[in-house]
Computed example of a mutant assay.
Amino acid sequence: MDKIRIENLEIFAKHGVFPEENFLGQKFVLSAVLHTDTRKAGLTDELSYSVHYGEVSHLIKKVVEENTWKLLETVAEATAKAILLSYPMVSQVDLTIKKPWAPIGLPLDTVSVEISRGWHTAYIALGSNMGDKEKYLNEAVEKLQQTSDCQVLKVSDFLVTAPYGGVEQDDFLNGALALKTLLTPQELLERLHEIEQEAHRERLIHWGPRTLDLDILLYDDLVLDTPDLIIPHVEMHLRDFVLIPLAQIAPWKRHPVLGLTVSQMLADLQAKQES
């Protein structure tokens, strides 16, 4: 990926843990590396195919000047988010914020915080088998779209499937969506749980009936195993009600552990079911 660099942008602002810092202010020095594809801009000499570094510089200045925070970490997060949301061609931003002569009672040149933030692609399974199933699924899609750190890219058709897991209950309506997000996997999980709770989801019976079920299937090519979140989803390759809608929107997405595409996993599963 190509890079556009903004080096040592000086901004006077009011950030710090001490009241006098928030009142008097001081100089901050920011540098940003914008990850973007400059190929078309280079071939056409058209600015519209690139990222206007002057506009980005003024956006950084606006965010840093017009807010007051205690921590450099907060300044960095807010600035990176503003850049990524404002410039779709930027896939990642590396940001460094330096604070010269920080008041720590010792001689130093600067303290600094450096972060890298960027867009990720996640695939989410949707399911419902209580009440107005289609309404619950459509509302979940809309709520993810309304989440400031998320953009819904594709949504599959919804299909009716038999319940999974041996619990007697109504048929499910299932689907899948592709999501562009700035959220970490854990933050995304928390957001999905919030949406489920807003649909009055109750976790009473394992594999039992539910108004709304939202699961992270894949997150980039991440392999993650924690007590509350496993990515890729541990049973996605065994569930046709997951693979059928996922194959509709991402047939060539490859499972980072099995090495198979979604289409290949679906074909293998259907072959086993027919044998």
Rank of each mutant, 00 (worst) to 15 (best):
T68E: 08
W69R: 13
K70S: 12
K70G: 11
L71K: 13
L71C: 05
E73Y: 01
T74V: 09
T74Q: 10
T74Y: 00
V75S: 12
V75E: 04
A76Y: 07
E77T: 04
A78E: 10
T79W: 04
T79D: 07
T79V: 09
A80Q: 02
A80I: 03
A80S: 11
K81L: 05
A82E: 12
I83H: 04
I83G: 11
S86H: 09
S86N: 08
Y87H: 04
Y87V: 01
Y87L: 07
M89D: 15
M89L: 15
S91F: 00
S91G: 15
Q92H: 12
L95F: 08
L95C: 08
L95P: 06
I97N: 12
I97T: 04
K99E: 00
K99Q: 05
P100I: 03
A102F: 06
G105W: 07
P107G: 03
P107V: 07
L108K: 10
L108T: 03
D109L: 07
D109A: 11
T110W: 08
V111K: 05
V111L: 11
S112K: 02
S112D: 15
V113Q: 08
V113T: 12
E114M: 09
E114P: 10
E114H: 10
E114D: 15
R117F: 07
R117K: 15
T121K: 14
T121S: 10
T121Y: 03
T121P: 01
A122F: 04
L126Y: 08
L126P: 09
L126G: 13
L126E: 14
S128L: 11
S128F: 09
M130C: 12
G131R: 13
G131T: 08
G131L: 07
D132A: 14
E134M: 11
K135T: 13
K135Q: 15
Y136I: 01
Y136P: 00
L137F: 08
L137K: 05
L137P: 00
E139W: 05
E139G: 01
V141S: 03
V141I: 15
V141E: 11
V141Y: 02
E142S: 12
E142M: 10
K143V: 02
L144P: 00
Q145F: 01
Q145P: 07
Q145C: 03
Q146I: 01
T147Q: 15
T147K: 02
T147G: 10
C150S: 09
C150V: 11
C150R: 00
C150G: 08
C150P: 02
